[in-house]
Design a binder for these strands. Structure first.
Lengths: 246, 246
DNA sequence: TTTTATTTGTCCGTATGTATA
DNA sequence: GTATACATACGGACAAATAAA
C-alpha cells in the first residue's frame, strides 16, 4: 500500500477516505502483499501510514470484515481470511477435480455408511419405489486437510450393493460408480439452500455452531438419463463459494 | 395416514417404526392432507392413531423437523412449514418471472440508492476503472408480501445515470434496463455462499438474527457480452431454494 | 388478570434386537 | 461364542410454554 494524504474534494472524485483505504487494503490483499492468515499492521500503524485517524482505518477494516476479507480479533489484531474455495456447479461437477483445479489437495474419507429403505423423496429422485433398498454413504471431504463439506449420498442397492467397501478402496465417487459399470455420469439438477450449523455440522466440519452451512442437494444420472446417485452435501459456507456459469 | 401396528420383523423390511411414521406423515403433507401452515394432530393423538408410544412419534417428528418439513412449537403444536420458493438460477434468471411462475405474487421496492465510485471488485466485474462512477440500487424483493431477498445492484453511471428514478416508475430491473436501451441481457455467472443474518438482514428480511442468508453475487451482460449490471442478493435461506439445472 | 387445560420438552427407567470387537 | 455398545421402542412423571376459559 502506498501512503496517501487526504486530497482536495475534486481530486477524490467524492470518494470517502475510509473507502479509499478499504480499496487500497483490498488491492494489497488481492496482490498478495498480505497473504492469507497474515496479521495486518495494527490500526494505529495503518492510520499513521495513511496519515488519517485510527477511526477512519477502523471504518475501512469494518467494511472488509463485513465482506469476509479480513477477521478482527480483539486484543490480537486483524487477519487476512483465507479466500473461499471456488466450487463450480455444473453438469460435470466432480469434487476432486473442482478442488484440484483450484490448486488445493482434495481429500475424502468415508465416515459412515448404511443400507436402508428409500424415503419418499429419495425414492422419487432415484426413480425407485418407497421402501426399495438404497445404500447410504457419508463422506467427509476436505481441501488441504481443511474440512469442506459433509456429503450423504444414496445409491440404489440393486446396482451398487457394496458401494461402501468399493469407495473405501477407490476413495472417489467417480471410481466407485465406474466399478459398478457406470463409465460416466452427469449432474442433472442442483438445489441450494442454507441453514445454521448444528452440533453435528460443527463437529464434522470443525466450525462453531451457528455459522452458516450451504446445503446442496444433487441428482446425478447416467448418460442415458437413469438416476444413479443422489446426494446432500453440507458445506462450511465460510470456506466455499459455489460458482454457476451460464 | 392409515393406522399401523408394529408388525413382525419380516413384514417391516427392517424399517424402523419411527421411520415408517415419518414417511407416512411426509406423504400426507406431500399429498396436501396437511397443508402449509396447518397444525398437525398432537403427539398423543398421532401416537394412538398409529398405536405406538408418544416417544416414537416424537422421533418421527424430529426427523421431519430436521428436514424442514415441519416446525414444532412448545405448548402449541407441530405445524407444516411453507415449502421453500424454488428459484431457478440460469442465463435467463429474472426475479419476477421466477416468483410468478411459482404461483406467487412478486414484489419489489426500492429502499435506497446512491451514486458512488466503483470499488476494485465492482470495477472488475463491470469492466470499469476503479473510481469510475456507478449507480447503486437497494431493492427489497418479496413473494406474496413475504420478504425474500435484499438486493444491491450496481450499474455503470455512464449508461444508466438515473436508474433509481426509472426503477421506481417501472418497478422492474428488466424494464429499467430496457429504458436505457438494453433490450435483453443474460446472467453470465453466479457466485453463491452463505452467512448468518446480521441485524440489517434481520430487519429487512424480517427474520431472527443468526438465521442463515444465502449470498448470491451475479454479473449480467448484454447479448453482446458487455457487463451491464452486477448485484449482490441476500436471500432468507428459510424461504428459498436455488435450483441449478444442467 | 388469573386460572386451567392442553401441548411440547426433558428426564427417569426398562426391555429388546443388532451390530461390533 | 461372549461381551459391549448402540439404536429402537415403551412407560411414566414432571416442567415449561401456550392458549383458552
Amino acid at each position: 500500500m502506498r501512503p496517501q494524504r487526504p486530497a482536495p474534494a475534486e481530486a477524490t472524485h467524492g470518494v470517502t477516505l475510509w473507502r479509499r483505504i478499504a480499496d487500497d487494503l483490498e488491492q494489497a490483499i488481492a496482490l498478495g502483499t498480505h497473504a492469507a492468515g497474515d496479521r495486518l499492521p495494527g490500526e494505529v500503524e495503518i492510520a499513521t501510514h495513511f496519515g488519517v485517524n485510527r477511526h477512519t482505518v477502523r471504518r475501512a477494516l469494518a467494511e472488509l470484515a463485513e465482506r469476509g476479507l479480513v477477521r478482527t480479533e480483539r486484543g490480537s489484531g486483524t487477519y487476512v481470511e483465507r479466500s473461499r474455495l471456488t466450487y463450480p456447479i455444473g453438469a460435470r461437477t466432480r469434487f476432486s477435480e473442482n478442488v484440484g483445479s483450484a490448486g488445493r489437495d482434495p481429500g475424502g474419507r468415508l465416515i459412515g455408511h448404511g443400507r436402508e429403505p428409500a424415503t419418499p423423496d429419495t425414492a422419487q429422485q432415484l426413480g425407485l419405489e418407497v421402501g426399495d433398498m438404497v445404500v447410504r454413504l457419508e463422506i467427509l471431504r476436505s481441501a488441504d486437510r481443511v474440512p469442506i463439506c459433509a456429503t450423504t449420498s444414496w445409491l440404489p442397492a440393486a446396482r451398487a450393493a457394496d458401494a461402501a467397501r468399493v469407495f473405501r478402496a477407490r476413495r472417489s465417487i467417480t471410481a466407485t460408480l465406474a466399478h459398478f459399470g457406470i463409465k460416466d455420469y452427469r449432474r442433472q439438477s442442483t438445489r441450494i439452500t442454507a441453514a445454521a450449523a448444528d452440533a453435528l455440522d460443527a463437529e464434522r466440519l470443525h466450525l462453531v455452531p451457528g455459522r452458516a452451512v450451504l446445503i446442496v442437494d444433487s441428482v446425478n444420472v447416467t448418460m442415458t438419463g437413469t438416476p444413479i446417485l443422489t446426494s446432500r452435501a453440507r458445506f462450511a459456507a465460510d470456506r466455499v463459494e459455489l460458482l454457476v456459469e451460464s
